[in-house]
Amino acid sequence: MRYNVYLAETGDAKGGGRYIEEPAQVENIVFQTRAGPLDAFEDALALAMTAAFDAGAFEFSELVTSLNAAGSLDRDGAAWTEATLDAELDRLGQALFQTIPAAGEIAA
């Protein structure tokens, strides 16, 4: 299974308004709390990053260099920079940890 199909995007949530439900009411699969599978870009980036780490790129600048050397491109089809990789990783992180308003709250 590539993502948690049991993960609802609404309702009461544990963990401060995150998209993870009450543990007693749903099957939460460890490390699979995405609401959907990776898209083709995200999958390719994950594979390229894994290869970069396997090759010993641990500093952020080394990661960017390794991604570019492997031919990985950002969403706009350009070579990665530290700024574009940072922005993409931030976007992906935000997607995982979106908050939902508590019952009765109005989203800003």
Rank of each mutant, 00 (worst) to 15 (best):
A78S: 08
T10N: 09
Q94C: 13
D39H: 03
L89C: 04
F53M: 14
E82V: 08
L96H: 05
N28Q: 15
A24T: 07
T65V: 04
N4H: 00
A108C: 07
M49V: 09
L38E: 10
V64G: 00
A95G: 09
E59L: 07
A51M: 00
Q98F: 10
L92D: 04
Q98H: 13
I20F: 06
A69H: 01
S72M: 04
G71A: 03
P23D: 06
A69I: 03
K14M: 15
Q94N: 14
D90Y: 11
M49C: 10
E21H: 09
L85Q: 06
A24D: 08
M49Y: 03
D86I: 10
T10W: 07
I29P: 00
G15H: 13
D86H: 12
D12Q: 13
F58D: 13
A107H: 07
Q25W: 07
A8F: 08
A13S: 14
A57M: 03
A51V: 05
A108M: 02
V30A: 15
L67G: 05
G56C: 01
E27F: 11
Q98S: 12
L47E: 15
I106R: 07
D76H: 04
E9P: 06
F97V: 15
Q25T: 12
A78R: 09
R2T: 13
I100A: 10
N68Q: 02
S72N: 03
I100N: 03
R2L: 15
L63A: 04
D43T: 12
G11E: 00
L89W: 01
F41E: 02
D76Y: 02
L73G: 01
G11V: 01
T50K: 14
V30G: 10
E9I: 08
A44Y: 03
E59Q: 13
Q25H: 13
T81A: 02
Q32I: 07
L73Q: 05
F97W: 15
L38K: 07
D86E: 14
E59A: 12
Y3M: 00
L96S: 05
